[in-house]
């Protein structure tokens, strides 16, 4: 099949970008979308043109590295990662628009590659359980109801790809943040830090410049892992509890990575 691509090209973060048009002929419908771009890049290289930069790594839908806005939809027409989208989802002669995730906190690095380090900083603000290595009790010490474990798992499958942000009309990362709050908040091990976690993570979310959630639901609709929309309400519930319980739930000072030593030792 033959397709025409309109692709966002931008030399670097400071440069102004524009859409460029490429004809891609003789491709197989069994190719993945990214393999089609590989083929285009091979041809561009032999022609002496700069290949298109795009992120991908595992190419089996789990690492979260890939992500393109295809025809205006994050990850394209199937609810899956871009790497799992195949050309059979398109028709011969289609004109396909390919753009990077667009959000102020996700600046473009080059072409279709964006910087998503804001997500890591949201996790740093509390998206963990403080369990220093070697201090854990036996795994069976605390049973976890299967229902809670399953729901925690559903939220924990987030791959941090950022499609939720790319799709959200508000540029909000609430689904990403809520997935982590829900994952850890449903488990008994996550209870001690439950409220400081939500306050810290939401504050970081806002500080990174993500927009506020107005419950439109586009995030869940494009999420390759179908993170349930309900997680956002769970986050809100925890946040309200935290705020109404006053200072006791505000984040502690960052943990120090060293053991206090008695000076006389």
């Amino acid at each position: 099949m033959n397709v025409t691509l309109r692709v966002w090209r931008q030399a670097n973060g400071r440069a102004k970008g524009k859409m460029a048009i490429y004809r891609v002929n003789d491709i197989s419908e069994d190719m993945s979308f990214l393999e089609m771009l590989d083929v285009l890049n091979e041809r561009l290289t032999l022609q002496g043109d700069d290949p298109i930069a795009f992120d991908s790594d595992c190419r089996e839908g789990i690492c979260g590295m890939c992500g393109l806005v295809i025809n205006g939809v994050a990850h394209g027409p199937q609810q899956t990662t871009t790497c799992q989208l195949h050309m059979r989802s398109f028709s011969d002669g289609d004109v396909i628009d390919v753009e990077p995730w667009r959000a102020d906190p996700f600046p473009v690095i080059k072409d279709l590659v964006v910087d998503r380090s804001a997500f890591d900083r949201i996790i740093q603000a509390g998206g963990y359980i403080s369990a220093p290595t070697g201090t854990a009790p036996d795994a069976h010490a605390t049973p976890v109801p299967k229902r809670d474990a399953d729901r925690a798992f559903d939220a924990a499958t987030c791959i941090s790809c950022g499609a939720c942000v790319a799709a959200c009309p508000n540029g909000s990362a609430m689904l990403f943040t809520a997935a982590k709050i829900t994952h850890l908040g449903l488990l008994p091990q996550g209870q001690p830090e439950r409220y400081s976690r939500v306050v810290g993570m939401v504050a970081q979310h806002d500080a990174e410049g993500f927009g506020g959630c107005t419950n439109i639901g586009e995030c869940t609709a494009v999420c390759p892992k179908a993170i349930p929309f309900e997680t956002i309400s769970r986050l809100n519930r925890d946040l309200i509890s935290a705020l109404t319980h006053g200072g006791s739930h505000w984040p502690r000072a960052a943990p120090k990575g060293e053991t206090e030593v008695d000076e006389e030792d």
Partner: peptide
């Protein structure tokens, strides 16, 4: 987005 193919969103 430059693409106008999804003006009304997914859902």
């Amino acid at each position: 987005y430059y693409s106008h193919k999804s003006r009304t969103g997914v859902q």
